[in-house]
Simulated scan of single mutants.
Amino acid sequence: MATVTREARLPKACVIGAGCSGFTTIKRLKDYGIPYDCFEMSDEIGGNWYYKNPNGMSACYESLHIDTSKWRLAFEDFPVPKDWPDFPHHAQLFQYFKDYVDHFGLRPTITFNTRVETARRTADGLWAVTLSTGKTRLYDVLFVCNGHHWDPRVPEYPGEFDGPAFHAHAYCDPFDPVDMRGKNVVVVGMGNSAMDIASELSQRPIAKNLWVSARRGVWVFPKYLNGKPADKSAMPAWMPRKLGLALSRSVLKKTIGRMEDYGLPKPDHEPLEAHPSVSGEFLTRAGCGDIKFKPAIKALEGKRVRFADDSVEDVDAIVFATGYKISFPFFDDPDLLPDADHRLPLFKRMMKP
C-alpha cells in the first residue's frame, strides 16, 4: 500500500477552546472540509458567556447585558431571534451560542472536559499537543481560542487592606461574594464592567457610599442615540474616515456634554481615541451623586484607603475592575507570550508574522 504523504492530504487543525471564537473557527473549518479537533476544558460551549462556568473562567455577573447591540453581534449566517431586546442579557446570548452550535452540527466535533496542557512546535514544524488525558497528538495548524477575560489583573499598592478586596471576575451580584448592603465601596477602574458594577451597587438600598477610583478620565457613551442603538449608526462608505470621526465626535460631545458636569474627571483624550466605556445608567448615577469619583489609590491603610489627592476614606470593600492578563498557560516558548505590558504584536491581531 502506498504511503500517504503530508502534501497529499489536507492539514489537520487543533482548536483550543469552544467559546465564540472557538466554535466559529471550527464552523469555518467544517465548511471547507478541513479536519480538526476542538478541545474544551468545560462541560459546555460558551466560555466567558457561560454564567458560573464550572471551569471558573466566566466573567459574567447576574445582571450583565452585552454592550453591543443585537444588530452588531449577530452571526451573518444565523440571525438573532426577532423578539430579542436591543441589548440582550447574558443568558440569551449563551442560548444563542448553543443554538448556533447545534444548528450547524458542531457539538459532536467538540471534545469536552479536556484541557490542553502543552502545545509545542516540533523540529519539523508540527504542533505537539498534550491533553489532560495524558495523550499527545500532532497537528499541522493550531488555533488559539482560549479567551482573554479569565486571568484577572489586580494592581499592587503600598500597605494592606483589612476588608474584602476582589476582582470583578469574582463578582456575581450585590450579595455574592460579599453582601454590599450598607457598605462603603470603592470600584477601581472605568471600563464597561466597572460602569455596570458601580451603577448596580450605588443604588441607595445597597451601598452606603460608592466611589469610583481611576487614574484618568474617560468618555462614557450612551447605549442609545436619537432613540436607536448607538452602534447601529454608521457613516456612508464614501466618507473619508477623518471627516467621519470628526463628525461623530461633534455629535457625541453635543449629546452627552462634558464629563466634568457629571462630577467626573475631564478625559485626557478625544471621544473615540480610546476604547469607549458604554453605559445607559452610569452618568445618571454620577449626576445624582450616587456615584462619586476619586483619583487612583495611593495606599491601603487597614480599613482606610488613601487616594492620589491624599484624601482618605473609610472603606469596607474594594472591587477591582482592572482588566485581565493575556495568558496562554499551554505555551512555554517565550516568543509566543506577551511582554510585561501585555502586548503581543500580531498581524491583524491574530497571527505572528
Rank of each mutant, 00 (worst) to 15 (best):
S233A: 05
G217M: 00
P240K: 14
N226L: 15
K228L: 13
L247K: 10
M235L: 14
P205A: 05
A207W: 06
S248W: 15
G217N: 00
G217S: 02
A230D: 06
L245F: 10
G227F: 06
V218M: 02
D231L: 15
W219C: 08
K223V: 07
V220F: 15
P229H: 13
V251L: 15
P205I: 03
F221R: 04
K208Q: 05
G244P: 00
I206V: 15
A237T: 04
L247Q: 12
K208N: 08
K208S: 06
K223D: 06
W211R: 01
N209E: 15
M235P: 09
Y224D: 07
R241I: 14
N209L: 11
S250V: 00
A230G: 10
G217V: 02
S233Y: 05
S233C: 00
Y224L: 14
L225H: 11
R216V: 00
L243I: 15
W238C: 09
K208P: 04
N209W: 07
G227Q: 11
R241L: 14
L247R: 09
S233N: 01
P236N: 06
P205G: 04
A234R: 14
S248I: 09
A237S: 09
P240Q: 13
A207R: 05
R216A: 02
K223A: 01
P205E: 02
A214R: 03
K228H: 09
W211E: 03
P222R: 11
Y224Q: 07
P240A: 09
N226T: 06
A237G: 01
Y224G: 08
A214I: 02
W219A: 02
M239V: 11
A234Y: 03
G244S: 14
Y224S: 07
V212F: 02
V251D: 10
A207M: 07
M235G: 05
A246K: 10
I206P: 03
A246F: 13
P229S: 11
L245E: 04
A246S: 10
P229I: 13
P236H: 06
V218Q: 03
N209M: 09
K208Y: 01
Y224R: 12
W238Q: 10
F221V: 10
K223L: 11
W238L: 08
W211C: 00
L245T: 06
K223C: 02
R241V: 15
A234H: 12
K208H: 06
P236G: 08
S250M: 03
R241H: 12
F221I: 11
P205T: 02
G244R: 03
K208G: 03
K228A: 14
V251C: 07
A234W: 04
K242I: 12
M235H: 10
S213N: 02
K223G: 02
L210A: 13
V220M: 13
L210C: 12
A230I: 08
R215A: 07
L225A: 14
M235V: 09
P236R: 05
P236L: 07
G217F: 03
M235C: 11
